[in-house]
Write a protein that binds this DNA or RNA. Structure first.
Length: 113
DNA sequence: CGATTGACGTACG
DNA sequence: TCGTACGCCAATC
């Protein structure tokens, strides 16, 4: 039935697959879905994620800069950082440290054959 | 129904 | 190298 939300569903599914202590970017997810330039749609999908269950670790999704751009969309902006820090991710000034090291690329980790 | 915005990213100057 | 403009697609005004 929710076929009109296939794109959103895919985004949510990928986000749920993000391992603990790892993060990914909107562009990576969009690229994995086949539309690297549709990164905005990923953001929209996350915005709709508030109405989806189970709640996905949206805190693990950041922009390509490694900055917590969507922290303002959480119940409490600092909650996003706290959640990431709780997973072992180091954050400084809303920016993820060692972003390249903990970066989780679905198109690579999920291994598209 | 048309125009604007939006949790981004890439291209161009 | 940094700043600005444009593009994607969908939802909202």
């Amino acid at each position: 039935m929710q076929k009109e939300g296939d794109f959103f569903e895919m985004v949510w599914q990928v986000v749920r697959l993000i391992p603990k202590g790892r993060v990914t970017s909107y562009g990576a997810i969009a690229k994995y879905l086949g539309s690297a330039r549709s990164s905005r749609m990923v953001g929209w999908a996350m915005n709709a994620s508030h109405n989806v269950t189970p709640k996905m670790p949206a805190q693990r999704v950041v922009n390509r800069n490694g900055v917590l751009t969507g922290k303002n969309f959480f119940s409490n902006p600092m909650e996003m950082q706290l959640l990431l820090e709780s997973e072992g991710i180091e954050i400084k000034d809303d920016q993820i440290q060692n972003f390249e090291k903990i970066f989780w690329d679905p198109s690579i980790e999920l291994m598209i054959e």
